[in-house]
Amino acid sequence: MNIIDEKVQALLEMLSLTSDNEADCGDCLQHLAEFAETTLAGKSIPESLRHIDEHLQRCGECREEFQALKFALGEHVTGE
């Protein structure tokens, strides 16, 4: 697969994840702490946080921040 094909694939992936109503990066930041605590506790994602999960699939920038947040919080978020 050449580099050009990679861009086509990336755009198709973007399209298949596109929906009419999406959370933006601001919404994501607002709910990311709650989302991180839920996932780090091994709980299933409630309906109220579904839009954040979907945003993280779509948005590489927020995904990078979420990964760093998980490192920052360590394995568990008890205490502190």
């Binding site: 930041l29 990311l32 702490a33 991180a36 605590e37 760093a68 947040l69 920052a72 919080l73 978020v77």
Partner: peptide, 12 residues
């Protein structure tokens, strides 16, 4: 969430 988790998201 915990206040400190929220504060950490901002710092990150």
């Amino acid at each position: 969430s915990k206040f400190t988790t929220w504060a950490t998201t901002i710092a990150i």
